[in-house]
C-alpha cells in the first residue's frame, strides 16, 4: 500500500514537472517572439546614450539655436533616439573630423550631410539614405516634364561655374540645343524661372527645397536629375547599432515621420 502511494505521488509529481516545463518553454518562446520596447542593451549603446556627431555650420541640416542645435539632422537624431528609448547627445564637429570621430569612438554615429562613399565602406557602415541632395530641374507649374530630354529645353538657368553647368553642358551633347543662362547664384537662377524669364532652373535639391519653402505660393515642380544620397555613418564593428538605426529609419520613412521632419525645412 505504502509503495503504491509513493508511486502515485511520484507519477503525479513527474506529470506536474512535465506540465510546468512545457509551460516554461512556451512562456520563454512567447516572450522572445514579442518585440517590446525596453532599456537598450549595453552592446548597442555602450555609453548609455546615442552620441551623434553633427556639423552645426550647415543649415538646414544642422545649425545652432538657443544654446542647442536645430535642423533636419538634430531632429532626425532625436527621433531615432526616442524610438530606440535612449537619450541622444549631439556633438558638434567640423566636417573634416567627422569620420575620424567615428573611428576614434568619439561618436556612435555621424549625421552631417555625408554622402554614401563606397571608398569608405571599410571604415564605416552607412545607414539607408535619408535625403537625396542631387540636382533637380525646377519648372513652373505643378506638373513636371515627362522626361529629362523634354525638360532640358528652351532656357535653362543655373549658377555660373558650378557642377550644374557641367551637367547642363553634358546634356547639350545629348538633346536638341537649349540655352544655358548663367547667374551668380542658384537663387537668382530660381528667381528667373519663378518670374517667367527661363523655362527651368538646374540647381541642387537643397537650394530648390529652401527656395520653394520661402515661396510657398509658387506653383512649381521638380524633376530629379542626379542622385546624391545623404546617410548616417556608423562604426562597422557595431552591427547591432547599425541594424537598429536602419530599422528605425525604415520605420520613419514608412510612417511619414522622415518626410514630416524634412518638410519643416524644405519643400
Amino acid at each position: 500500500m505504502a509503495a503504491t502511494t509513493r508511486r502515485s505521488v511520484f507519477l503525479i509529481g513527474l506529470a506536474a514537472l512535465a506540465v510546468w516545463s512545457l509551460a516554461l518553454a512556451v512562456g520563454v518562446w512567447r516572450w522572445n517572439s514579442v518585440l517590446r520596447v525596453g532599456p537598450p542593451g549595453r552592446s548597442i549603446f555602450p555609453y548609455g546614450e546615442l552620441r551623434v556627431a553633427i556639423d552645426p555650420s550647415n543649415p538646414p541640416f544642422a545649425f545652432p539655436e538657443s544654446e542647442s542645435f536645430a535642423g533636419i539632422e538634430p531632429e532626425l537624431a532625436q527621433a531615432i533616439g526616442a524610438r530606440l528609448g535612449v537619450p541622444v547627445r549631439l556633438i558638434p564637429h567640423g566636417f573634416d573630423g567627422l569620420y575620424d570621430a567615428i573611428r576614434a569612438d568619439q561618436a556612435d554615429m555621424a549625421m552631417a550631410a555625408l554622402v554614401i562613399n563606397p571608398a569608405r565602406s571599410s571604415d564605416v557602415r552607412y545607414s539607408p539614405a535619408y535625403f537625396n541632395a542631387g540636382l533637380v530641374l525646377v519648372v513652373n507649374g505643378e506638373t513636371p516634364p515627362a522626361s529629362l530630354s523634354e525638360a532640358f529645353s528652351g532656357r535653362v538657368a543655373l549658377a555660373y561655374g558650378s557642377d550644374e553647368q557641367t551637367e547642363a553642358e553634358s546634356w547639350l551633347r545629348r538633346v536638341e540645343p537649349f540655352e544655358i543662362a548663367p547667374y551668380e547664384t542658384r537663387e537668382h537662377a530660381l528667381d528667373v524661372v519663378r518670374l517667367g524669364d527661363a523655362d527651368a532652373a538646374l540647381v541642387d535639391a537643397i537650394t530648390a527645397g529652401r527656395y520653394r519653402a520661402a515661396y510657398p505660393g509658387w506653383e512649381s515642380s521638380l524633376l530629379q536629375v542626379s542622385v546624391v544620397p545623404y546617410a548616417a555613418a556608423l562604426r562597422p564593428d557595431r552591427p547591432a547599432l547599425a541594424a537598429a538605426v536602419e530599422r528605425t529609419l525604415a520605420g520613419m520613412l514608412a510612417d511619414g515621420t522622415l518626410q514630416t521632419i524634412i518638410s519643416r525645412y524644405l519643400r
Binding site: 543662362a181 548663367p182 537668382h188 530660381l190 528667381d191 518670374l195 524669364d197
Partner: peptide, 11 residues
C-alpha cells in the same frame, strides 16, 4: 562678370 544680372525682382 560672366553671369547675367539678377532679374528685376530678385529674391
Amino acid at each position: 562678370e560672366r553671369w547675367l544680372p539678377p532679374p528685376a525682382a530678385p529674391s
